[in-house]
């Protein structure tokens, strides 16, 4: 999961304090693994260095936690590129894909497109495996099948998610 992109995406709806960012992240994506504040701090400073965010203002009282961040145009472009790029079809992509979908929903981008693109990528991988399987020997077949089944599982998850996007949108924007 790309925490940086996720935080950037959260900033698209408006400038936030680092503490707010952590709370929003935990609420939408953290579920079983809440973000450490240190992670937010280090990520934000990396983004700041890369010019993807800027400091919008500092609350009186000082301390790093009182900084308010805003996304830059470069930051928005970066999020967009990230969302549009399908992930390499590897097993256990769910949490990353989930983040992407939720973020897309949060930022009013076309979540279905993300899923379709991803599915296409998965299928490409599956085609390669299927092809190899057809040409390979029996051992190859078994190995390819294993990979195929995993990809298929992801793909089915994608399908299912695609079918339930409306419900998900309701849940995350509530």
């Amino acid at each position: 999961m790309s925490i940086g992109h996720t935080l950037l995406g959260l900033l698209e709806s408006g400038p936030r304090h680092g503490y707010d960012l952590k709370r929003a992240f935990d609420e939408k994506f953290g579920h079983d693994r809440p973000l450490h504040y240190g992670q937010v701090y280090s990520t934000m400073s990396r983004l700041l260095k890369n010019g993807l965010v800027e400091v919008d203002g500092i609350e009186p009282g000082g301390g790093p936690e009182r900084k308010r961040y805003a996304i830059t145009d470069a930051g928005i472009t970066d999020v967009e590129r990230w969302l549009a790029t399908p992930e390499k079809p590897e097993p256990y992509l769910q949490s990353l894909l989930y983040s992407k979908v939720v973020l897309a929903l949060l930022t009013q981008r076309a979540a279905a497109d993300i899923l379709d693109t991803q599915r296409s990528e998965h299928l490409r991988g599956m085609r390669i495996l299927t092809d190899r399987k057809r040409q390979g020997d029996f051992a190859d077949q078994l190995i390819c099948d294993h990979a195929l089944f995993h990809l298929e599982a992801d793909l089915r998850w994608l399908e299912l998610t695609a079918a339930r996007l409306d419900k998900l949108a309701e849940a995350v924007t509530a």
Binding site: A112, D116, T117, R119, S120, H122, L123, M126, R127, L129, T130, L148, L151, E152, L155, R156, A162
Partner: peptide
Amino acid sequence: EARVAAYSDREVVVRDGRSRDM
């Protein structure tokens, strides 16, 4: 089925009556 679709050269997705050539 994805594994059946994997035998294809490309796929077209139909959603809500509209197609999308990936």
